[in-house]
Amino acid sequence: MSFLRSIRGKKAESLDDEALVKAYQEGGDLQALADVYERYMDLVYGLCLRYLEDPELARDAVMGVFEVIVRDLTKYPVEYFKSWLYRVTKNYCLMQLRSTGKGKIVEFGPELVYLEEELHLNEEVYGKLEKCMEALPEEQRRTITLFYEENKSYQEIGALTGQEWSKVRSQIQNGRRNLKICMERRTHVQKGV
């Protein structure tokens, strides 16, 4: 039995998320689902901790989320497991908060900060990026440069500029958002012309 499982385990490691999900969806392989879930359990637990603010509740939520994916993966096709899991986990925690009456307002803003795709840096894009960088507020530009070009951590940037960790992070997030908006605007302008 354990011998069999160790072979499975090795097999599972080499498979990508979607293949394991498929093994569950098509063959009902619960172990395959557990294997792929385990890859993200650290993140799921962290996310639950963030919302539920209690380790015990968070651990129960991690198990609860697994039940949800066991149920829902047979019903819906899932293209990209990780981002789907992120949404499922978040919704599960929010439902928990609602049901315990711990009414807490939860943002749906931060997702806007994340770029969906990496920018492909060809010359045209690079030119735009440079212009957009120039348009950034001085502080944001400096922080972004330190982070992306000099590969400094928030802590190191904080030490250089005398800012709080959280300030550095929000500057990078805001800078990224501004850059994204600026890049999009320039694209629109070009299309319009």
């Binding site: 963030r50 899991l85 992120y86 982070f147 400094k152 951590s153």
Partner: peptide, 23 residues
Amino acid sequence: GAERHALERAALEDPFLEEALEG
């Protein structure tokens, strides 16, 4: 510092990681 940077950079691209980091 380099490790911190790598994690922060990954978190910026990945809201899942970012929120877990906070948790």
